[in-house]
Design a protein around this nucleic acid. Structure first.
Length: 407
RNA sequence: GUGGCUGUAGCUCAAUUGGUAGAGCAUCCGGUUGUGGCCCGGAAGGUCGCGGGUUCAAACCCCGUCAGCCACCCCA
């Protein structure tokens, strides 16, 4: 038996419908905030992610699907969306259009991690990026937009956490301070490795959390501090509740200043529903114009798990089920079906050749609101018996009447 | 990637100390003349994840493998 590959899965109905509902909700929010869609390619040059996401990040180092194609080019399945957006922005000179460079994307990402519930090797992300705006209002807008997106879906069990990791200069200084302190602490093996490579990540360690209590926080330069304070103030005046988390650092190289993560306590260790931050130097470092930017990405599977209990998102039209007393009326029934559908009425049938009992049972299990019953009588008089399946009431009518009522 | 738990009908789970599988729900058909949901009857459905090994004999033991889950790691 052929199965799906580890970490890859079918998304069946009704989950597929839920995913669509989530995407629609996101698109509505993006319209309101004036973000424009970019449909990115799934495959990019491997180098793109090395240069943007970062050579020493786990994503690039051990989770990325990379391969050589027929002409020996080193390619990769995208592990995240931001590098693609930045590349597209540079390639198409989108900064010269004069309009705000506010973009969103919806698409599958690939990371070869060990799978778990809420963590797959192919997963869907909805992301937003605001390029070329250094103002703290851009940070705040992006965060508030994410918050209203989750609220729109009826999700309540999450907490926005934010932090500032400063600019390149702030971090360079902090790195020295941090290493000095960490030297004197007996850290776990993972953290010992991190000291040399990316000491900031030690702060995120769960096993050593208690030992890190007295570690000094990053000392932000005046500009970075002002920016961070502004972001927090804007959020507060706009009633967005957040938690400051000095231990929040991100695993992608390009972040500067504001970083944030929307966490939930409902999904075990897969607690990040959405996250993002500012990346002021990325675009320039990729060969583009100086464009300080900020953005986020949200995981659709994780969002779906939080929405699942709440089925109000999926609202379907009433279903009409055509039932035939005898297969002799099949053609007549099919005509009715076709007419209904032409008039945008949701209609279905099961099998005109089986007993009326099983056809009605099908109507029931398909969730039909009405059954249209055709027998000898109806056939001869060109009428339809319309049965309301929720209360059992039925009456004789005809096709035109049904269509009129539905309009 | 590391450690651990799990894998029997569509679903949820049983199967005494190893003796070649069962229930509930779901499915399908039926319960007489033109009617569903409840009830009743019947039927169908399993190479016991897959491959080896031990044994007279394995769903049960051993090894491998695939997949899922939990924690770590990482992150959406």
């Amino acid at each position: 038996m052929l199965t799906t590959v580890r970490g890859f899965k079918d998304i069946l109905y009704p989950q597929s419908e839920l995913f669509t509902a989530i995407e629609i909700a996101a698109r509505e929010i993006f319209k309101i905030y004036n973000y424009k869609e970019i449909r990115l390619p799934t495959v990019e040059y491997y180098e793109l992610f090395v240069k943007s996401t970062g050579e020493t990040t786990d994503i690039v180092e051990k989770e990325m699907y990379k391969f050589e194609d027929q002409s020996k080019r080193m390619l990769a399945l995208r592990p995240e969306g931001t590098p693609g957006i930045v590349r597209a922005y540079i390639n198409s000179n989108l900064n010269l259009k004069g309009e705000n460079s506010k973009f969103f994307y919806i698409g599958n990402m690939f990371r070869a991690e060990r799978p778990q519930a809420g963590r797959y090797r192919e997963f869907e992300q909805i992301g937003a990026e605001y390029l070329g705006n250094a103002s703290p209002y851009a940070d705040a807008e992006v965060i508030m937009m994410l918050d209203s997106f989750l609220k729109k879906l009826g999700i309540k069990s999450y907490t926005p956490e934010i932090n500032s990791i400063g600019c390149t200069e702030c971090r360079k200084k902090y790195r020295g301070v941090l290493i000095n302190h960490l030297k004197n602490i007996d850290l776990c093996d993972d953290c010992k490795n991190r000291i040399g490579r990316n000491p900031l990540r030690v702060l995120d360690c769960k096993t050593d959390r208690d030992k890190l209590k007295d570690i000094p926080h990053i000392e932000l330069c005046t500009d970075c501090r002002t920016h961070y304070e502004s972001v927090k103030n804007i959020l507060t005046t706009n009633n967005l509740k957040f938690k400051e988390n000095y231990f929040l650092v991100r695993g992608l190289d390009y972040y500067t200043r504001t970083v944030f993560e929307f966490k939930t306590d409902q999904l075990g260790s897969q607690d990040a529903v959405a996250s993002g931050g500012r990346y002021d130097t990325l675009v320039k470092s990729m060969g583009g114009p100086d464009s300080p930017s900020v953005g986020w990405a949200a995981g659709v599977e994780r969002i779906a798990m939080l929405v699942e209990k709440n089925d109000t998102l999926i609202k379907e039209k009433d279903l009409f089920f055509v039932v035939s007393m005898d297969k002799a009326y099949s053609e007549y029934c099919l005509k009715i079906l076709t007419e209904l559908r032409k008039n945008n009425i949701r209609a279905d049938f099961s099998n005109f050749s089986v007993s009326i009992k099983s056809q009605l049972r099908s109507a029931n299990s398909n969730g039909a609101k009405y059954a249209l019953i055709i027998g000898d009588d109806e056939y001869k008089t060109n009428t339809i018996t319309l049965k309301n399946l929720s209360n059992g009431e039925q009456k004789k009518t005809n096709l035109n009447e049904i269509i009129q009522i539905m309009h």
